[in-house]
Design a protein around this nucleic acid. Structure first.
Length: 289
DNA sequence: AATGAAACCTGACAGC
DNA sequence: TGCTGTCAGGTTTCAT
């Protein structure tokens, strides 16, 4: 389901709703392979913690936790360090990957839980935080503070030079590289196709055959597409909804994804769909070289 | 090293 | 009504 813009939207929504709340109890379905950490470990760590922040790293949702009733440590020690030192992370982190069909909702306990609910956290405010995932490609795990490795660089934080260097000289098709989370984290099938269209590059072009100018254009395209999508709350292609149950609207702005056979918006050539690396790729055979 | 297919799962939808 | 086949926003693992 979710790529960077959807996960960003969900994480912001969750932060607004549950930051500051505390986890009192937990229920887990135990169904594999939902749990990357053992369910018993998750059940042992989460209750008794408070949610300091909810944020996104790549396609992961990160819950920064701290032990309930314990104040943040004084930060005097950090003073001597450089201004660039990262904020101290007090407690464990709960990491949620939504896979293809994962959803997180804040519910009243009186609401019946839907099929494929795999985790329910009881919050001190009386509400419940629920994780629902029909296909079970999502993953839940806990890590100790600062131990989480999300992969490559953030597309919206990387500078142009680093971006170009990530791809320059690689023999792999540029779309494979864009989807490789160890290089760039957060871009998935929709936004790879949309970015490549805007940059005028075919998905199968080998990265090594792209000029610096083309890579710079791709850099701009990726950032524009992601920013526009976040502004519209993501793309709701089939069942994606954010933490408030609201659909996104970026699917209305797709120029190639899901538009096979329809006319290209800039040249009227029918959009093509080809399958490679096991996924659909959509492109305009005229505009993209 | 690097491509690519298969596997992990369920549900929706099209066609017969 | 029901069967079969295809497709789906992701990632990992195994074979070539």
């Amino acid at each position: 389901m979710p790529e960077l813009p959807e996960v960003e939207t969900i994480a912001r929504g969750l932060h607004k709703r549950v930051a500051g709340d505390c986890i009192e109890d937990i229920w887990l379905s135990g169904k594999s392979p939902t749990f990357k950490s053992k369910p018993a470990e998750i059940a042992a760590i989460l209750p008794g913690t408070c949610i300091r922040a909810v944020r996104r790293m790549g396609k992961h949702i990160v819950f920064d936790l701290e032990s309930a009733g314990r104040k943040k440590k004084p930060q005097g020690i950090a003073k001597a360090k450089s201004r660039k030192a990262p904020a101290l992370v007090a407690g464990p982190q709960w990491i949620v990957h939504l896979g293809m069909t994962g959803r997180m909702v804040v519910s009243d306990p009186s609401e019946e839980s839907v099929k494929h609910t795999h985790a329910v956290l009881g919050l001190a405010s009386g509400r419940e935080l629920r994780f629902i995932d029909p296909r079970r490609f999502g993953r839940l795990s806990v890590v100790s503070a600062g131990n989480f490795e999300a992969g490559g660089v953030e597309p919206l934080e990387v500078n142009r030079e680093r971006f170009v260097e990530l791809f320059r000289g690689r023999k792999t098709p540029i779309k494979s590289a864009l989807l490789n989370q160890k290089l760039l984290r957060g871009v998935g099938n929709i936004y790879a196709d949309e970015s490549l269209f805007r940059a005028g590059i075919r998905p199968r072009r080998r990265a090594s055959t792209l000029s610096r100018e083309q890579l710079e254009r791709l850099y701009v395209s990726v950032q524009e597409v992601l920013k526009e999508a976040i502004a519209l709350g993501g793309s709701s292609v089939s069942d994606y909804v954010d933490a408030d149950g609201e659909e996104g609207f970026f699917q209305l702005k797709h120029r190639v994804y899901g538009r096979e056979g329809e006319r290209c918006l800039s040249c009227k050539t029918p959009i093509k769909r080809v399958v490679f690396i096991g996924r659909s790729s959509h492109y305009c055979p005229n505009c993209q070289k």
